[in-house]
Amino acid sequence: MIKAEGLTKRFDDNLAVDGLTLNVERGEVFAFLGPNGAGKTTTVRLLAALIAPTDGRAWVNGYQIGEDNINVRRSVGILTEAPGLYERLDAVQNLTLFAKLCEVDDVAGQVEKYLRLLGLWERRAEPVGGFSKGMKQKLAIARALLHEPPLLFLDEPTAALDPEAARTVRDFIGEIKEAGRTIFLCTHNLDEADRLADRIGVIKQKLIQVDSPANLRHSLYGRRVVIHLASVTEPVRTAVSSLPFVEEMQQMDNALVISLDNPEEQNPILVERIVAAGGAIQFVNELRHSLEDIYFALIEEEDRETQA
């Protein structure tokens, strides 16, 4: 669906994107994370054939950017950072223009379909300047979907929205995902990325890491289980540390944090040993690092490497 090879963009002396190599598969939700100025929006503009790369090549839906830009733009929908609507025009006029520009066959039908789908049909004749931020964002999403593109670029879709509007938009993105569309999601909202994305790419001019959130957690922190006990006694500590598969053990009050490489198989043995050693287990759960921890760990590592 998206294939980029050494994609580079330079604005005068400023290197915005540095040798991006990336594959995004059909039906995948790919979250693109990075600090401000990291090159996320520039990457979207490159992949949507809005700007030309300084170096490298990329194919979107089988069309090479720079060679077949009109077909690239025909096959993608884009939600820009700002909704960019015509505020004096009503919702139907806004969508009709874009439906015509995107060569939609049944303009009126598609406009009605998406206005109804996003709950805006009753307000269709009102100037969009009077819409709330959430409604504007929904209208902008409808605009990106009118021509039923197989690939959707969403640049900060929930930024500046109140929690209720953000949830509505996020739920709708979930529905688009369920419908099997490929989504390239640029966001600062790490929780959103964690919930929606199949894979995550962290960028700071160059791509630092790409993987699923689960694999990133495992590769950075390993897998840890937390066992809460009524009290941690010496026999319990000895029983746990003597197990050959326990890589590391830390005590935090009445809990033991234990690093394992295969908790699904090793947890039952661990629990059995603790009980045998007289431990009273209250809870067992997996220590799950937030995507925020992963993101900062990757960015800090990149900064250290750059400085070195």
């Binding site: 949507a48 809005l50 009109i70 733009r73 884009i78 820009t80 960019g84 520009l101 060569e103």
Partner: peptide
């Protein structure tokens, strides 16, 4: 302008 330029 950007959404407009993103159309074919």
């Amino acid at each position: 302008l950007e959404p407009l330029l993103a159309t074919p």
